Simulated assay, not measured.
Amino acid sequence: MRYDDSPPLPESRSSISPDRPWFARRPALTVALAALAPTCLAGWVLAQVLTGSDSGGRQPEGMPLAASHTTAGSDAKASASPTPAPGTGPGTAASPAQSPSGAAAPAKGPLTGRTVVIDPGHNTGNFQHSAEINKQVDIGTNRKECDTTGTTTNSGYMEAEFSLDVSRRARALLEAKGAKVVFTHEGDRPWGPCINERARIGNEAAADAVVSVHADGASAGNRGFHVILPARVKGGAADTAKIVGPSRDLGERIASNFGRTTGSSPANYLGSGTGLVVRDDLGGLNLSTRPKVFLECGNMRDDKDAAQLMSPEWRQKAAQGIADGITGFLGG
């Protein structure tokens, strides 16, 4: 079927004058080119089949590039720049340089070669595992429950959620300074770990500093933060003689930086306004062989403190205060 906008049909042979062959009307050059065209086309198609590309090995336009993987020890090169790793939040600087295997290269900074252990207090699953966390464990000088549930705000925001969030924020800040950061848990286990295991993780990591992150559950009206320092204890597997001094230094630096960064005041209900408290009944401190402190960032049962603890912006400040205190302690 022929439409009005279709090109005219070729002249039929019957319309050619009988005294001249139909092909005689074409110039000799046209005939020669027509004869060569099929041969050239066939040659070009054969070249594409053999090379698999349109020119010089380039991928034809409009076709997606195949994924490129670089394996250690191979000579392969990626044909495109690697996709930058996602940042950790608003305002994040350009992603770190990529290693040959594609993984982010460790940051270099004032804490390069240092190991920090962060211990996010409690676990959101502890509420459903009371039998497990109530089992007694040896803390050297005594026996205590494996762990506790932690507290909540009056609206139900859990201490375990708070502590893990602040810990992760602090980790990002410390890793940016070159530190190796080890967690006692990532919130990916059903309950725990027990207090003796938390201490063991710090010891086995040969940590230069250990900080356990918490929030208090005192009565309303009690406000502010405090840092818990290890007392001098000895008994069984507990012997804090070597860590009492450096732990106090760590605690003082965290208290100073935490207060300045968050704008919070030292607790008004213990510590005589210093923000420092010494205790001999915490297994995580008694069993530690590395400088270690507990930080109670505020009182979840006080509405004013709770409002701060539930604020992501304030939690970032809290993490900054912790990271700055650790950095100062380690001489970074």
Rank of each mutant, 00 (worst) to 15 (best):
A206P: 03
I195W: 06
H214Y: 11
I195V: 15
D188R: 11
G202W: 02
A205D: 13
W191N: 00
A176M: 09
V211C: 04
A209W: 01
V211H: 05
G192T: 09
C194W: 06
P190Q: 09
V210A: 08
G178C: 09
V213C: 09
A176C: 05
K180D: 10
N203V: 14
T184R: 00
E197F: 02
G202H: 03
H214Q: 13
V181S: 03
A179I: 10
T184C: 04
N196E: 14
K180R: 13
E197C: 13
G192H: 06
R189N: 07
T184N: 09
V182I: 15
A176K: 06
G178F: 04
E186C: 04
N203I: 14
N203M: 10
D208Y: 05
K177L: 07
D216E: 13
R189T: 11
G178M: 01
D216W: 04
G192D: 10
V182W: 01
V210W: 05
G192C: 06
D188T: 10
A207P: 10
A176P: 00
W191H: 01
H185T: 12
A215E: 02
V182R: 00
A179H: 00
C194G: 15
D188S: 11
V211Y: 03
R198K: 14
D216G: 05
V213L: 14
A176H: 08
A206S: 14
D188F: 04
C194D: 04
E186Q: 12
A205N: 02
D216F: 01
G202P: 10
A176T: 06
F183N: 11
R200Q: 15
E197A: 08
V210Y: 05
I201M: 07
V182A: 08
D188L: 08
R200F: 09
K177S: 09
R200A: 15
F183C: 02
A207M: 10
K177Y: 01
R200K: 14
G178K: 00
P193T: 12
E175W: 03
E197G: 06
A205I: 07
R198Q: 15
D188C: 01
A206R: 15
S212T: 07
A215R: 00
G187S: 05
E204W: 00
D216Y: 03
N203F: 11
A205L: 01
E204G: 01
E175K: 12
T184H: 05
A215N: 01
K177N: 11
D208H: 15
T184V: 09
V210M: 13
P193F: 14
E204H: 04
R198E: 12
A206V: 11
E197P: 02
P193S: 06
V181W: 00
G202L: 11
I195F: 08
D188E: 11
A209T: 12
V213P: 02
W191T: 01
E197I: 14
D208A: 13
A176N: 10
A205V: 02
N196C: 13
K177P: 03
G178L: 07
R200W: 13
G192P: 03
A205K: 07
W191V: 01
I201S: 05
